[in-house]
């Protein structure tokens, strides 16, 4: 799985209320959620983000609530992957389960620049910067990579349960 996109830099501890405020949790359509993603920190983020863009953040990205609305909103806004020093665990699980690649890199946030175009190679485990520099990333356990390759847990469940509907 290879992704290429323009970088948005974020800081540490980006919480789920900053990603998608609680008042929008009654919305279940990801496209509608996407219109409000990050609206409390970057005005009109939704109109500025381009398909394929990549978030590069500090530590503890996605801390707070278990709301799956958070990764759903990010993905539906067109973000192709999130790189961070570390992730809050429920956000990490949710992102993989809905097919949003989340990548742990200790160095990325310190060296990558805003608007830089970077490439991520998940299987081979590296990020390639515009200047050709390669940063190693933490590899997933195999079964998690499989879920991501499927495009999310939904597809895996469909394969398992979809045919024997009663």
């Amino acid at each position: 799985m290879i992704f290429k996109g323009r970088v948005w830099l974020f800081g540490d501890n980006i919480d789920t209320d900053l990603i998608i405020p609680g008042k929008y949790l009654v919305i279940t359509d990801p496209k509608e959620l996407a219109k409000h993603v990050f609206e409390n920190i970057i005005e009109s983020f939704y109109t500025k983000v381009k398909p394929g863009d990549i978030i590069v953040a500090g530590k503890n990205f996605g801390c707070g609530s278990s709301r799956e609305h958070a990764p759903l909103a990010i993905k539906a806004a067109g973000i192709s992957a999130v790189i961070a020093k570390s992730f809050a665990r429920i956000f990490f699980r949710n992102a993989i389960n809905i097919g949003l690649p989340v990548i742990i890199s200790d160095k990325a946030r310190d060296v990558i620049k805003e608007n830089e175009v970077i490439l991520i190679d998940l299987e081979n485990g590296y990020i390639e910067r515009e200047n050709g520099e390669r940063l190693m990333i933490e590899k997933y356990p195999k079964f998690l990579l499989e879920i991501l390759k499927d495009g999310g847990l939904l597809q895996t469940l469909k394969r398992k349960f979809g045919s024997d509907n009663d």
Partner: peptide, 29 residues
């Protein structure tokens, strides 16, 4: 529980943790 504060219930000697909605669907099935 599909809520991050499910960890509350560890106070009763259970292992209790919050999960997301999609994996809750997997648990339900």
């Amino acid at each position: 529980g599909a809520d991050s504060h499910t960890c509350t219930l560890g106070a009763l000697g259970a292992f209790a943790t919050g999960i997301g909605s999609t994996e809750m669907a997997a648990v339900v099935l």
